[in-house]
Nucleic acid binder design. Structure first.
Lengths: 233, 233
DNA sequence: GAAAAAGTTGACGCTTCGGTCAACTTTCGG
DNA sequence: CCGAAAGTTGACCGAAGCGTCAACTTTTTC
């Protein structure tokens, strides 16, 4: 009866944001109802838009709730915290990270494989610009909300593909270049259009980056990379 | 006497942040004292660190004040608002944007000029990683705090250098590629190391990106770009 | 068809935020 | 050395942030 406020093992950041918590009335467990699935999706769809536009710190749960048409408390019923929503989204994007990488297989022709990879990355960037930007934002901030596992995953995926490039070089199929720096060129060049939209637009002069712009980008990048790696013709 | 709170022509965003204001007791005008200069610099130095790490929304004036060893009210004495500090910083970075671009002059040898440009951009990126990331963050968020003039500036600088590339192509000194997409490849590739530090590191495997890593990056990027544009040998 | 589980919601608590202010001390020009 | 300008600072404000909760309704389960 009005004695002492209950102490729990929680850490707080600014805004009193809970960093770690144990759920009390168990949402999000075996909850696989239709309602649950629908509302979760509604919330995540709204969240990705808000996080993309405002970034993690700039986004507010109230805005996400408003955009998804649900009361704020309901959002918290499905996701225990702001971080939980964000992490879910980041994990989703991350799972796409290496999907395109699977196009690079040793038995394939290097020129074809690389051209496909560039094409696939640019396609993903164009069709999922919001996710791409959200991930870019996370990366710019040093991957604050990426788990150790996430990092290990990225690393493993990268290394396995570095091996493919090395095999191609070993076989004399392409010039010897540092594989990781080549990858960085590819990642950077393909993501730029979504992540730094305003900067790209300021050069393209267009109000929006069109599908035709992406086509020209793919063509230019592919040509320079292939020729630059001794894969022309 | 305690009548009505004074109404002024201000607009507020979240957190009651002032979007436009008129200074009351005129700081920051002809204030060119030594004290003023020193404190301004102290604040900006602290601010860039906080903004880089946390982004605009994540940064708080209290933290900037703490880091610069000044009381919060003193920070507001020199800079009327959070935006004022941020904009000052962005303007500084922007003024560096085209400095490197001046290396690309029509009368120079294309291969040499491009190699120098790549080198210069990477050097700036390495030595001013914080600024680079802060600017990247601003760009990812759509350039919320970039003025129309800032945009026009970027655009003009870009277009003038596009013309240089076109002249080189016209003269048959290099392959015909879309100049703007080539620029984007260069910007993206050189900035990646600072902006997406964790991602780059996950591939490089190092705990920190070293000067040697930058050297190898410069070498790889230069080789691929030059050869890819028909500038080899 | 009733008990249990899942979902809904408005009001609330506490913290931090950007920004203000008034009283004070230091610096500086003449 | 004096008066004005510049600089300093603790206390404070209202707004907004994240997260909580208890009471309620709906859906599912058996």
């Amino acid at each position: 009866m009005d004695s002492i406020a209950p102490l729990r093992d929680i850490r707080r950041s600014r805004h009193g944001e809970v960093m770690a918590r144990r759920s009390r009335d168990r949402p999000a467990d075996g909850a696989n109802t239709r309602i649950s699935a629908r509302n979760r999706k509604t919330i995540l769809d709204a969240a990705i838009r808000v996080f993309t536009e405002k970034g993690y710190d700039g986004a507010s749960i109230a805005e996400i709730a408003a955009l998804s048409g649900l009361p704020k408390a309901n959002v918290y019923y499905y996701f225990g915290s702001k971080q939980a929503i964000y992490r879910t989204l980041i994990a989703d994007v991350l799972s796409e990270w290496d999907k395109a990488l699977t196009l690079l297989r040793e038995e394939r022709d290097p020129a074809e494989a690389l051209a496909d990879y560039i094409r696939a990355k640019l396609d993903f960037t164009r069709r999922h610009a919001a996710e791409s930007r959200m991930f870019a934002n996370e990366a710019v901030h040093g991957g604050r909300f990426m788990s150790r596992g996430d990092r290990a995953h990225i690393r493993a995926a990268t290394l396995s593909r570095v091996k493919v490039l090395e095999a191609w070089m070993e076989a004399g199929k392409m010039d010897r270049v540092e594989p990781i720096h080549l990858f960085i060129m590819l990642w950077a060049s393909t993501q730029y259009y979504a992540d730094f939209d305003i900067l790209a637009r300021s050069g393209l002069g267009s109000g929006r980056i069109t599908a035709a712009d992406y086509d020209r980008a793919a063509e230019t990048i592919t040509r320079i990379i292939l020729k630059g790696c001794g894969l022309a013709g």
